[in-house]
């Protein structure tokens, strides 16, 4: 639905492109694409993920599933896993931190995208990139405090995890969730009190990455090591 709307808009303004080149003034501002499909937010979903780092084994099943499902170009990642080694022999420890876009409720990437190509579907809170509008300015890639974005050299636009929107809207869980060998990833709707994710959140204490930035991430972590989540977020 929404996609189609956007496309029509695009065609409209493509037609007006020649004109707009000369009419760069305020008038042109009026043909801004209509704000995201006016779906009412009542009864809206709020998709989120819990990642239990206790369960993560750093197997990278998620990484590969995501690459394959989303046809991510070589060397780029929508999902990845950091492995952090701490301590001295024999008191060593490893900490695994699976990463993906946090689908922030107050998303710096969205706030700073000059074109509005980064947008949120209000009906479920997922943050997307509209490849038809994105000019590929890289601003959002720097704006995301979590390194969740990359420049896609095939589409020449910004790209990132969109919670596998094509799957979740078809009733299938995200690829990294179904692939996860440790069952470390739990996906669901925070607005549905019966959902597995709500139960998991209620039963565990969770953290988000860099809560200090107040981006309100929707990816929550169980038992992530302080060294990974703390102020020295260089480990992300």
């Amino acid at each position: 639905m929404r996609q189609i709307n956007r496309k029509l808009n695009r065609r409209q303004f493509l037609g007006s492109l020649g004109v707009s080149a000369t009419a760069l003034g305020a008038g042109a501002l009026l043909i801004q694409p209509e704000k995201r499909a006016g779906a009412s937010t009542a009864g809206a979903k709020k998709y989120a993920m819990v990642i239990d780092t206790n369960r993560c084994t750093c197997c990278h099943g998620c990484t590969i599933a995501c690459l394959s499902e989303n046809n991510v170009p070589d060397g780029k990642y929508r999902s990845w896993v950091k492995k952090i080694a701490k301590g001295r022999y024999p008191d060593t420890s490893f900490h695994f931190l699976p990463r993906l876009c946090n689908q922030c409720e107050d998303a710096p990437c969205l706030n700073l995208c000059p074109t509005g190509a980064t947008y949120r579907t209000e009906e479920d809170g997922v943050v997307h990139v509209d490849r038809e509008i994105c000019v590929g300015c890289h601003v959002c890639i720097d704006a995301c405090p979590y390194g969740a974005r990359f420049f896609n050299p095939i589409t020449n636009t910004a790209d990132k995890c969109d919670f596998c929107y094509h799957r979740i809207t078809a009733g299938v869980e995200p690829a990294c969730v179904t692939a996860c060998t440790g069952r470390a990833r739990i996906f669901g709707d925070l607005n549905d009190p019966q959902s597995e994710i709500i139960k998991y959140l209620n039963a565990h204490s969770t953290q988000t990455i860099r809560a200090d930035l107040d981006t309100r991430p929707k990816v929550h972590y169980v038992a992530a090591d302080a060294a990974i989540l703390g102020a020295d977020y260089s480990a992300l």
């Binding site: 801004q32 509005g116 000019v135």
Partner: peptide
Amino acid sequence: LGHPERALTMSYNWN
């Protein structure tokens, strides 16, 4: 820009 041909659209695709 990834899409230099879209540079001018930045005048009206405006956030």
